[in-house]
Design a binder for these strands. Sequence first.
DNA 1: GGGCCGCACGTTGTATCCAATCAAGGAGGA
DNA 2: TCCTCCTTGATTGGATACAACGTGCGGCCC
Lengths: 237, 237
Amino acid sequence: MSATEVLREGVTGARIAAELRSAILTGEYAPGARIRQEDLAARYGASRVPVREALRILEADGLVTLVANTGAWVARLSLAECEEMYRIREKLEPLLIATSIPGLGDQTIRRLEELATEMEAGTDVEAFLRLDREFHLLSYSGAETTLLGDLVHRLWNTTQHYRRAYTLLLDGGSNRIVHDEHHLLVTAIAAHDGEDAERVLIGHIRRTRLQLELHPELFDDLGTGRTPASQNRKDLL
Amino acid sequence: MSATEVLREGVTGARIAAELRSAILTGEYAPGARIRQEDLAARYGASRVPVREALRILEADGLVTLVANTGAWVARLSLAECEEMYRIREKLEPLLIATSIPGLGDQTIRRLEELATEMEAGTDVEAFLRLDREFHLLSYSGAETTLLGDLVHRLWNTTQHYRRAYTLLLDGGSNRIVHDEHHLLVTAIAAHDGEDAERVLIGHIRRTRLQLELHPELFDDLGTGRTPASQNRKDLL
DNA sequence: GGGCCGCACGTTGTATCCAATCAAGGAGGA
DNA sequence: TCCTCCTTGATTGGATACAACGTGCGGCCC
């Protein structure tokens, strides 16, 4: 995103894509919800052409599912797919954090510590999600790598909704371990110990994946749209 | 691709995307080459609208670089970006092969062995590239995973050109080790030894990456287009 | 009464036309 | 002679209008 996003569309398509992406990430549109082109066109004051460009951009981001001659839905993941995403993240994010650490300045590291503390103190779920996202993405900001960075960014976006659902589930519960891991990560980063940061991060992601597997109900169909919207693409093979 | 490809465009956009993708992968269009929308429209007998859809699909695949209000070019990688792709592959393909092995039937494994042998016997570069691609992708076909499979598929596509350039470079040279690794991989797969397959595959990809780093001239600008087309996106930050 | 066929509606896909943007070339001045 | 600005051409981006496809409802036949 970020870097490559700027130069994507003339202007309208990119604007619609950015706004719609934001709307999906904040939960305004739920997974499985039908998206009609004319609705978006009216909402953003444009014709259907740039809307379709935006939908394709978001499809590439994994936030929207398109079916030819039928329509678009907010992407949804099955439990198996979400698990898969987490396994991918377990492999890629350690690589990214290791290449990022040498590029992180003292100021950034202090900010990371602030974020970890702030997260621990807060109680609001939405605030936690926002801070958590900022924390991790900031920890990757030292990497110059465009491709890997964008890829990880996409993975975060596609799993955003399920992170929210899970966080809401254990709201007020014992998620102290999350904050401990964050502080451990900051410590490893401050020590410029890439290997240790990798270890902590693997555990962090893996633990979340195992927790998610305990809650298959998060992936049930909520009947928000008419057609399942992905959920099982295998029937097309 | 494959699975999700079918349901992408009404029909024209998908057709153009598929044909253009094929043209890029076979080397008909070189990295950095300018792509004009009207040329494609004329070539495929359609208007510019589905052409733009196709370009966006291929941009998501990493095969095309779009710049707003300016144009499209066949994507090119810098040495650093290519290295990055290979580091990503080193992490993801072992994961994929491990999940694929339990799903591979005896017939598929025999076919893998055939391919490894056929590659060893052949001398034509294009034939080698085709067989190598078929070999590896077939070795991943046991995985039901849609997301990881498609992702790896994309990684193969974006690095295809540089695999070709490198293979041409050492044409006739001592690439025996490649074939040895392929046979080792088949052996591990036949033994249903996921861990061993992971090890061999990591070495296989890593060795290629190290070789590529010795040949930065493969990434020089060949002057095929007017504007660099990516090559350094950092100036946009 | 149940299942199948067909028509009509809504939505998406494509073509054509017009506007906006960028790049290159030339004219003018320092 | 070189730099700058402007103009012109080519190419892309967006809007409107039309065609194609899929879906759902109603009627008809079994």
